[in-house]
Design a protein around this nucleic acid. Structure first.
Length: 625
DNA sequence: GTAGGGTTAG
């Protein structure tokens, strides 16, 4: 009966997706309680149990809160004492109806509890995101002497998401081993997911490999685990491998894979996956569609993102945010504001903290400084119902900095109700580099180096600034300071997708099969560009070497290798799409501009923060990033 | 009767 119903729902969702219809109605029959409740007062004890049970089941199934409350009230009125079984049903009912207080009340009033009632209450908290309450209750359960079962373990592990939770999670793992539940597939997927969320992907992998049987959920959990940690290629490889072994996939699996493809900006692979989803019987639930919106925007194709957004029959705040963030990263400020206006007009979903963040950064990236500052004003006066957080303040520093109001930005930082973070000082330093304000830049730079002495990128930007002012002595001492602090830098990588294959380059990479061609091309470009005005920005190199060497290092930057390969290997009619894992360096940004000007090729460059669409020697970022 | 995996931002 349940299966048929589910099938029917899925079918109608599928239908509505293809017919672009935005409304989906699932009819729920109203539950009439008058008759059964009246009859119950007359029937015997056993009969009452069965009747109550049936009624509660119906209420749980239909999430019928009021009716459930009436059944509960009837028990109290007729002085019927429900068993542990029925009380647990009530906990489940109230949890489903989003009434945790009522659920807890039933739980507290229980004279005796068993593993099921404990688990139901723990699950209530973890489902609603009250992780610490769930963990507390689990500990209370252990103290009460109730042995957890596989349901309890699978449930409680989902609440192990904070640093305290991860610690507890490890202890729970040993408890699982002791109680012989480690082979259980539900427990295992919950466990491996916890490890993945703690960044311990090897532990997660071990748990996964030790499972005697695998199913969709455990496979999805491990694939998504890789994707969430940014190990996108590994996620993709594992997906292919497990698929080869006959793994079943569902819409959650595809969501995980699409997230990995977003990270890689693999447009062709992404399209292929999307097609696969459309062709197969996989229903496109909101979460999957959200991941598609994000994937297309991160692959540089906002038109497709919008197409999906427009045809969704239901949108959550995440759908709106994904679309807004997409426009923002592409520097489409007007689109951001238009969509935000539409969102507020529709009133179906309320903006959240991420929404405002997207709007503010959209104004900044889109060069709409004053509009952005206005929106922040409105935010602080409570207009959107969202409290400003550190990130929002960071956007304001960005907005002021972009307008060249560097002094004001510094004053703003001093007056913030938060301790400034590295991101805030970094943003101010970046503004000072663009607007050549050495004094404030130096101050911001030193604050930044104090908080984040290990980040090599910070030294480079400050060095850019000193070089701009001709303060070579300071450039040198900065380099010495960097050596002293033994800075390690996340290795820069750039890649380009060609016929569904990703070609990745590291700095001075010599591993590509066409390395010789690429080397010659980079050199040729550099020589050619110099004739039309390109001057290598040596301040982007902090090594203690002579100028010739510095230039050589610059030419080895991964962005230049990928760009040159793109120039060789892609047809003239298409834009060169390069993705960089870090912020793009000033010199490579300039180099890309020359490619666009001299070769008449559009360059689309995605770096850590945003898209740079470079046409005819001009970049959509307005040289501010 | 109680259970596991999923989307935006940083």
């Amino acid at each position: 009966m349940f299966l048929t119903r589910r099938k029917h729902v899925l079918h109608s969702i599928h239908q509505s997706f293809y017919s672009n219809s935005r409304t989906l109605t699932i009819s729920t029959t109203h539950i009439h309680l008058q008759q059964p409740l009246l009859q119950m007062t007359l029937t015997g004890f056993n009969m009452k149990f069965q009747n109550y049970n049936e009624l509660l089941n119906e209420c749980v199934h239909k999430k019928a809160f009021r009716e459930g409350q009436r059944v509960h009230a009837h028990m109290i009125k007729t002085r019927y004492l429900p068993s542990v079984f029925l009380r647990t049903r009530l906990i489940v009912l109230y949890t489903k109806c989003d009434s945790l207080g009522d659920a807890r009340h039933v739980f507290d009033e229980m004279h005796e509890r068993n593993v099921v009632s404990w688990t139901a209450m723990i699950s209530a908290y973890s489902q609603r995101g009250y992780a610490s309450q769930a963990l507390n209750l689990f500990i209370q359960m252990l103290r009460s002497g109730t042995e957890p079962n596989e349901f309890t373990f699978a449930t409680v592990l989902t609440s192990c998401t904070s640093s305290l939770g991860f610690m507890l999670g490890r202890q729970i793992h040993s408890l699982i081993i002791k109680s012989n539940y480690e082979d259980h597939v539900f427990v295992g997927s919950s466990l491996l997911d916890m490890y993945a969320k703690d960044g311990k992907i090897h532990e997660a992998q071990t748990v996964f490999e030790c499972l005697p049987e695998r199913d969709v959920v455990s496979c999805t959990a491990i694939i998504s685990g890789y994707a969430q940690l940014g190990l996108d290629e590994e996620a993709l490889e594992l997906f292919r491998c497990l698929q080869g072994e006959g793994m079943q996939s569902n819409y959650v699996t595809y969501t995980g894979v699409i997230t990995a493809l977003s990270g890689l900006a693999a447009l062709d692979l992404g399209k292929q996956m999307h097609n696969h989803v459309l062709r197969s019987e996989i229903p496109s639930f909101v979460v999957l569609q959200n991941s598609l919106i994000d994937m297309y925007s991160k692959c540089g194709n906002l038109t497709y993102s919008r197409r999906i957004f427009d045809t969704m029959y239901e949108r959550t705040v995440i759908s709106w945010n994904a679309m807004l963030v997409g426009y923002s990263k592409h520097g489409e400020g007007r689109e951001v504001l238009e969509l935000f206006t539409l969102m507020r007009k529709e009133k179906k979903v309320k903006p959240d903290s991420v929404t405002i963040l997207a709007v503010l950064s959209g104004c900044s990236h889109g060069g709409l400084e004053d509009r952005g500052l206005n929106i922040f004003q409105e935010m602080t006066s409570g207009k959107f119902g969202v409290e400003p957080k550190m990130e929002h303040y960071g956007c304001v520093v960005d907005l002021l900095g972009r307008s060249g109001r560097v002094e004001e930005a510094l004053e703003f930082i001093k007056k913030m109700p938060f301790e400034p973070t590295a991101a805030i000082w970094g943003s101010l330093l970046g503004a000072c580099r663009v607007h050549s304000n050495v004094d404030i830049g130096e101050f911001a730079g030193h604050q930044l180096l104090e908080i984040e002495p290990g980040n090599a990128g910070n030294y480079v930007i400050l060095s850019n600034l000193y070089a701009l002012a001709g303060r070579w002595e300071d450039v040198r001492s900065l380099r010495d300071l960097m050596l002293k602090k033994t800075v390690t830098k996340e290795p820069g990588r750039s890649w380009i997708e060609l016929d569904q294959v990703l070609h990745t380059f590291h700095a001075s990479d010599r591993s590509h099969p066409r390395r010789e061609e690429i080397r010659v091309k980079v050199k040729e470009l550099s020589v050619g560009f110099k004739e039309v005005g390109y001057v290598p920005d040596l301040s982007c190199v902090l090594h203690d070497v002579d100028e010739e060497q510095k230039e050589k290092i610059l030419l080895g930057h991964s962005e230049k290798l990928a760009l040159s390969f793109g120039l060789i290997a892609t047809p003239e009619s298409v834009p060169i799409r390069v993705i960089k894992n870090l912020r793009i360096c000033v010199d490579c940004h300039n180099f890309a501009k020359y490619i666009s000007k001299v070769y008449g090729r559009e360059v689309s460059l995605r770096d850590k923060n945003r898209f740079h669409r470079i046409v005819g020697g001009k970049c959509s970022c307005g040289d501010y990033w």
